[in-house]
Design a protein around this nucleic acid. Structure first.
Lengths: 226, 226
DNA sequence: TCAAAAGTGTTAAGTTTACACCCATGA
DNA sequence: TCATGGGTGTAAACTTAACACTTTTGA
């Protein structure tokens, strides 16, 4: 026997990316008008096929880079979707990843080139195949992770106000929070510190700008919000 | 263009199963001596390749059935492992699933036929390839899920004592619990009810046997232990 | 009769929730 | 001067954690 494996079937393996953004107090999703058959012209997640010379994580980063021009996005695998008929074109097994992208990093030009656009999270059109399931799974996973790990900062600009931070977590959890209780909790987190600067764009009074201090978090990596 | 997909690479896709058991107050793992190259004779997870005519979930159930003879095990996908050199034989992308198996269901004969055996959880030998990573990920996922959903009962016999239940959750969480606090919590869960029977094997006095009442749980599906 | 596991309540500490007003500023 | 978002503390409700002795019974 030269190679035990060769008698088994091989499959196309794809990556699909659920790309979350946050602007104007709302979560949004980056979706794409599909430019090839099957389902050409319909809305879908950004995706692509895994190549021989890359791991699946590398493939996910490459695909995301092609669309956004950004190489260092926070990404996490959600799960793999392998129903037989999920892609009517041909059997494809697809690994879903979610990514978090900060508004300051949006490269509108690059995104437009790919027929992609941001859609308000609770107003996403019907997507092709099982992409709606992928989005649902990604939301669930992202929410769980965000409640227990400081990944949310990847959705905010480097410097942010406490009101922004609160509205982010309200959007993630889908429920309103008490301002004073929220600020009390933030005050107890040494890894969220003031920059000394003020943001005057959001109010007449101006709000203090805070930042996430990774070095502090790494000293004592505990996080619990929501 | 006849088929847009055909220019892309195809991959072997495998399933690897992390099979958890619980006996004698300890979690255990079902591992297998590999009967083919590469890495023949070394310890590995139970696995197999996905076939053309089945979804990946179906493949996972099939593989588990071949080993255990059981069709209705609790299973959940952990994640997909796709590093290029993870299998030195050939490029294989592998989807890991964990399964929970109750001691009363152990079919020792069938398991032996597959060169498989139960290993005490914190005494598992070094496994091939990235199987140790898979086990670590599965443990993490199983613990998280078990703390918030009543999947643990899949590791117990139909009828169990409160001491058994407590030692299960101690094993899952890796930390001791207070007996009175634990029983208080259990008492507040309407979906854990007494059977009226007693188990005399574990002590002279005998302990009341309880059971998980799915119908009750479904009425008000909330669970929080640990 | 005694060893071994089963069973049983109370209190203190900590956490979470609810709640309302003053401040600073630019228009 | 006033409309707008920014900022601040306290008390009650609830949850969690700590803790030790009595019961039953087979060997």
């Amino acid at each position: 026997m030269k190679n035990f494996y060769c008698e088994y079937s091989k499959f196309h393996v794809a990556i699909d990316c659920i790309i979350f953004g946050f602007t104007g107090g709302k979560l949004s999703l980056l979706v794409q008008k599909r430019s090839f058959e099957p389902a050409k012209g319909q809305w879908s997640l950004m995706g692509g096929f895994v190549r021989k010379d890359e791991s699946i994580d590398e493939a996910a980063h490459r695909i995301l880079f092609e669309l956004t021009g950004l190489a260092d996005l926070y990404m996490e695998q959600v799960g793999t979707f392998g129903e037989i008929g999920r892609d009517p074109g041909e059997r494809v097994i697809s690994v879903a990843y979610y990514a978090l992208i900060a508004p300051e990093k949006y490269d509108t030009g690059n995104i437009r080139n790919h027929n992609a656009c941001w859609m308000d999270m609770d107003n996403v059109p019907k997507l092709i195949f099982d992409h709606d399931d992928m989005v649902a799974a990604a939301k669930r996973r992202m929410r769980e992770k965000a409640s227990v790990s400081p990944i949310g900062f990847n959705l905010l600009p480097e410097k942010f106000t406490l009101s922004q931070l609160q509205s982010l977590y309200e959007a993630i959890s889908g429920s309103a929070m008490d301002k004073r209780n929220f600020r009390k909790k933030v005050a107890s987190m040494k890894f969220i510190g003031t920059t000394g600067e003020k943001d005057k764009t959001g109010s007449r009074k101006g709000a203090v700008l805070y930042r996430f201090i990774k070095e502090e978090y790494d000293k004592e990596p505990e996080f619990k919000i929501l």
